[in-house]
Amino acid sequence: MLQARKAGSQATTVSIEIQNVEKRYPATGNGPGTHALRNVSLSVSKGEVVVIIGPSGSGKSTLLRTINALETVDGGSIMVDGVSVTDKATNLPAFRTRVGMVFQHFNLFLHMTAFRNVVLPPIAVKGVSKADAEAAANKYLARVGMLDRAHAYPAQLSGGQQQRIAIARALAMEPQVMLFDEATSALDPEAVGGVLDLMRELAGEGMTMVVVTHEMSFAREVADRVVFMDAGAIVETSTPEEIFQNAKSERTQKFLSLVGSA
């Protein structure tokens, strides 16, 4: 299955085009400003899985969050499926329905059951009928293996269960692209494997994915390309084989030896 996907992802259609993006956080009373993204350019093809790795504070999450405009940029441009994210005239809510996002802390709506979490967004945002939304919710909750816990509130669910439901919620919007922002960092070791398997399956089905993670084995096995970031800049972009066995930059080599995957 993995092989089939890799062959399929040769398609040249570009999904995400990030060009020369700059992001600065201004200095506050608490500390100096930071230059969070320095001239970052990255393009992601349709069906491609790009995994971004790098030390904490290197700008991985910031870069991911600029893709659906949860962060604004100070320079450069970002296009997703032909829509300019960085153009002020873009209708962001309409655009964001096409980009699913999974957060480190799940961010399920706490006052709703798991089922309602998955049903509400298509109804409220896309105007899908209740019956269709419920059918889709059942399908995607079954897909992530959470149908039996559908009527529990987030507070009654474990981290791993919540993250699966968050993935179902994002999928129910039928996005073109999925962004994963350290989706397994807040999970216990046992739950990590299950969520990673789910992401692996999604990748296998040809979903375009940008994944920020500290799971080097996931990067190695699932990524079409691995991006190494440090201090707000992309240091190196290459195939997993190249990055993990043959990194060009000394900074990349040092990072990988520290995380024990070189």
Partner: peptide, 11 residues
Amino acid sequence: GQWEAAFALGF
């Protein structure tokens, strides 16, 4: 995170 999740879904 509640705001961000809603925004990310297109609310």
